[in-house]
Design a protein around this nucleic acid. Structure first.
Lengths: 111, 111
DNA sequence: CCAATATATCACATAAATTGAATATGTAAG
DNA sequence: CTTACATATTCAATTTATGTGATATATTGG
């Protein structure tokens, strides 16, 4: 059952902890709720991709993709790796994957 | 593994289907990524609540809570039930719950 | 060093989301 | 019908997010 139950006599520090967690979760969800960023993350589930590859995969311009990756990077969701001129991105941990699995199950199953 | 792999020779109708699903998922995630709405949904997991109860639970004003509920209602995430003067809201299905469970696990476990 | 390629950043314009105050609606009680 | 209470809606102001074009940085090859 998600999140502790909050009542009138939940003490302040406990309440702050809950609000902080809600804010973190909210930021994370905002980061992945953008259509382009969501697609990028989905593509990264199957392995790292270069920026150019992602541009093609989601049919968006270089600057847009770079900014979307920038946001995901700042949010700690992806990690860049340079190899020569190209930069490859991969998922930083399984947080996005865990959520994407559920979302995929809810929105993409059959039909 | 989330989402079908898209390549240069994915046919147009298949591609549209994927983009549509991504848009749905994106809208859903946007709806739940707002801090106030996230808290509301969390509280509804444990059962239906009146608007006034929610106002107290998340310490927000009447108009704000009502607007947040309105958004969730339009997005199909919650369902209102009138009983006299008060209106009780409950989760429309287990979509939000499914996602919240993962988010709770990722952001609220221990510490 | 110079040109070419890959990526990042910036500044701006626009669009979308959010808030707050005021007002409206629906319901029960008298 | 009138009042009080619970909730919803509206509108303007503000904030935040996003895409675009131009420009900057880093790397490789010649």
């Amino acid at each position: 059952m998600p999140l502790p139950i909050i009542t009138k006599d939940t003490n302040p520090s406990e309440l702050n902890a809950v609000v902080d967690k809600a804010r973190s979760a909210s930021n994370f969800l905002k980061a992945i709720s953008h259509e382009g960023r969501l697609m990028i993350l989905c593509h990264l589930v199957s392995g790292e991709k270069s920026v150019t590859e992602l541009e093609d995969l989601i049919s968006a311009r270089q600057a847009a993709v770079s900014q979307q990756l920038s946001r995901l990077r700042l949010e700690g969701l992806v990690i860049p790796r340079r190899d020569g001129k190209t930069i490859y991105y991969r998922l930083a941990d399984d947080k996005p994957k865990r959520v994407l699995e559920v979302v995929y199950d809810l929105f993409c199953h059959d039909n």
